[in-house]
Design a protein around this nucleic acid. Sequence first.
RNA 1: GGCGCCGUGGCCAAGUGGCAAGGCAAGGGUCUGCAAAACCCUGAUCAGCGGUCCAAAUCCGCUCGGCGCCUCCA
Length: 472
Amino acid sequence: MALKIHSTLTRQTEEFVPNKPGHVALYVCGPNLYDPCHVGHAFSYIVFDVVKRYFKYRGYTMRHVQNFTDIEDRIIAKAQAENKTIQEIAQVYIARFMDEMDALNIQRADAYPRATGVIPTIIEITQGLIAKGFAYEVDGDVYFRVRKADGYGKLAHRSLDEMEAGARIQVDERKEDPMDFALWKASKPGEPAWDSPWGKGRPGWHIECSAMNYVEHGPQIDIHGGGHDVIFPHHENEIAQSESFTGKKPFAKYWMHNALLRLSGDSSAEDKMSRHVGNTLWIKDALARHTADEIRLYLLSTHYRTPLAWTDDDVDAAARGLERLRAAVATPTPSPSPASRGGESALTQFANQTREKFIAAMDDDFGTPQAIAALYDLAREINRARNENATAETLAPAQATLRELAGVLGLTLEEPKSKMLQAAPFIELLIAIRKELRAAKQFALADKVRADLAKLGVALEDGAQGTTWKSQ
RNA sequence: GGCGCCGUGGCCAAGUGGCAAGGCAAGGGUCUGCAAAACCCUGAUCAGCGGUCCAAAUCCGCUCGGCGCCUCCA
């Protein structure tokens, strides 16, 4: 079975064939650093984290590059408003970004280049594009000549004429074509600026990604990813710049775009989550309410190309499902009774079939919803076997498989860290006393202990192997 | 105005031509001193209308409803 990917460029689900056998060069568009990241960003980065984990699982080596755009109009505006440098602004959000990615169990990229770190390459590419006739200078600005680029609009599947017919942008008379976009902008007083052949200035919005790709990956990459909203103009322009400059096509072999997350309000209409619109849920706030496993399971329960509307209730529903998965991998105390030989190999066999189903689902354009369904099926079989007194040894292989597959989705299946570690010895003490009460058939008192602990947020569960507790 | 997506049981969500995955919730049951957990059982003809086909949630057309991009955006 071959791994297939839906590419925005062809609008087809194609078999994945890397440029270099066994290796994947992946570039994912990172954030502009003028504000914290919201769960829409988290969704995108989780999606590509799963893409990466799955490729590794299938034996590919990866090089994953994620950029930071640290020079851009909004960052400049923010810096001016707060009387700070753009570097100071960027640093604050980069530190927060890294913390949040770690908290979401998103594996770090191999490189995090910053736009301001590749200015010489940006100038080199811009010069090259001018030399080849793809760009022109006007008053210290440099514009890309879209009419010259081969197949401009091929990613967005729109022709230039269509775009101009419906364009709402103000036409800059100095540009040859209204759709021409800036590679380099002459700086205004007070703005950060770099020396260039066209005077003091700074990069336009799209060129930095072409430059960072060129520096980190070379002229061609396998997969370029990002949110659906960045297809046009950002990725379209990246293709135009990179292919025109290097002459190598395709710039990226597969273009993957995740659908956009919407934020479901109490009564208001659901809108795309977006920082400039203002309806955002910061990652930090989401993590205060839900664990990374819960958030990931929820987001991955929908296919990445299907839009979904975030609601806390739905995340909570996913969290309850997660508990069943966790119950399945929880290690039971080895049973003293002899192994029930009957279902032993059958469970392992089921686990192996689950792995095949999981792989088949993921091979088909990262079908996480079906992959997760397979996980639930396996969890049920494990729990059932345990109910039928299977030994720890019998359960272990299937549990290992469940952990293995969950790990591909970045799910740890670990119990959330208890908020009551300090109280643990006292809770254990109460459990021990309650055990004696139960042995003495003083059930009313035993139940009171359990009920009162529940009021304090501690749930007791009496199992065959004794009583366990967890905080809620 | 142009390009595109979506509408599946109470809720979330797969399936994209051949008897409708999975999760949450709900009801019934097993187990348990009781409870919890776990497990078992129960439920949808796929927005509406028309068409193509031996056969459609899946293809075509129209209608209604929701959304995205075309400008900053993951």
